[in-house]
Amino acid sequence: MRLNPLLPLLSLLTLTAASPQTTTITLRIAPSHALLPNPNALAPATHATLSSLHKAKSAPLTVANTFVFGNVSAGSYLVDVHCATHAFAPLRIDVVPSEIEADGRLRVQAWETYRGNDWDNKGEAVPVGEAGLEVRVVGGKGYFMERSKFSVLSILKNPMILLGLVSMGIFLGMPYLVDNMDPEMKAEWEERQKTNPMNSIMGATTGGSGVGNFDVAGFLAGSSKKDEAGSGSGSGSGSGAVASSGKGESRKKR
């Protein structure tokens, strides 16, 4: 107990005596950041490195979320924080050889640095305070790729499918609409259809012939002409499936 007041002084003395040309650099992770709300959850393997030509130092993450480098000699260092879960911005730290701070240590300056750019292209200066200088979180690291999941909704969201569904709806719903029309209106509408130049291209009328008359369900069910001819069911059959010239003709057959 008697010794306690002496201790800090003693330690300071030994430090300065043993290492006249060095300093201590403390890096600090912000206690709370939007990208890293709880730095206490960082893995213990997180560490920071100081590197320069023929110099390398590594410091583990401390309980107080700092990295402490002792006995750093003068030079210009690249600082990287290596963490499994988060990425940190690299820093440039200069330990100025000629300038000595009040506590007998060398002066430290820090800037953000940009990899792949000129080393002297310094970014914003990072303030070096009592509690060290702060390292900036850039973001979390995502190691995994999302697997595209099979989902009916995602298929339905596809515009091509949507287009198809709408046109199918019109295609199937039109005959009912036409059936429900007034006879007069229907006649009028059919008249208009005949004069429509599109019809010549489409080659189809309300009842549907040609392409429009193609019976998808029937085809899937296997009721092709050949099939039915073989089974001999009904005369003049298959008109639904194979008729190519329109309703009128099939009516004549009967």
């Binding site: 369900a217 029937g218 899937l220 069910a221 009721s223 009904g234 059959s237 008109s239 639904g240």
Partner: peptide
């Protein structure tokens, strides 16, 4: 779907054939 639709379609076709024009 095909197994369900097949008798339905067949029935519809036969009905269509037997309906008077």
């Amino acid at each position: 779907g095909v197994l369900v639709l097949r008798p339905m379609v067949r029935k519809k076709q036969i009905n269509a054939l037997w309906t008077a024009p």
